[in-house]
């Protein structure tokens, strides 16, 4: 019998896979994609919550989280383009000029 806990389990695992990607990769584009993984796995919890409490509100939250995710990607890609123009790389570990 499929229950809410299954949704929760899968979503926690996917969330931390995304977090792993953020910590682990050095390319800004990969970090952006990992952030998207994190936000989407949160949506999985919400849809489980909606389904098992017969509630419309989590679905609204999912829609608004989609907005946030879209904004994050758009801004991040704009940043990547700017970084490429200014510093000729999007490798975040190579940014070390600010060290006092």
């Amino acid at each position: 019998m499929l229950g809410f806990n299954d949704y929760l389990l899968v979503s926690v695992i996917l969330f931390f896979v995304g977090a792993l990607g953020v910590l682990f990769r050095r390319n800004l584009i990969y970090i952006l994609m990992s952030l998207e993984l994190m936000l989407n796995s949160i949506n999985l919890t919400l849809i489980g919550l909606a389904k098992y409490s017969n509630d419309t509100n989590p679905q609204v939250l999912i829609l608004l989280i989609l907005v946030v995710a879209a904004v994050e990607v758009a801004v991040g890609l704009g940043l990547a383009i700017n970084l490429m123009r200014v510093k000729k790389t999007v490798d975040v570990d190579l940014f070390k000029s600010l060290k006092g």
Partner: peptide
């Protein structure tokens, strides 16, 4: 639900989108 209970978050999300658009454009 979006236009009653979540009206204010909806409006804030629209501001957020506007900020995002301007920001992406600027960068």
């Amino acid at each position: 639900a979006l236009f009653s209970k979540y009206l204010l978050p909806f409006e804030v999300a629209s501001i957020l989108l506007l900020v995002g658009v301007v920001l992406a454009f600027i960068f």
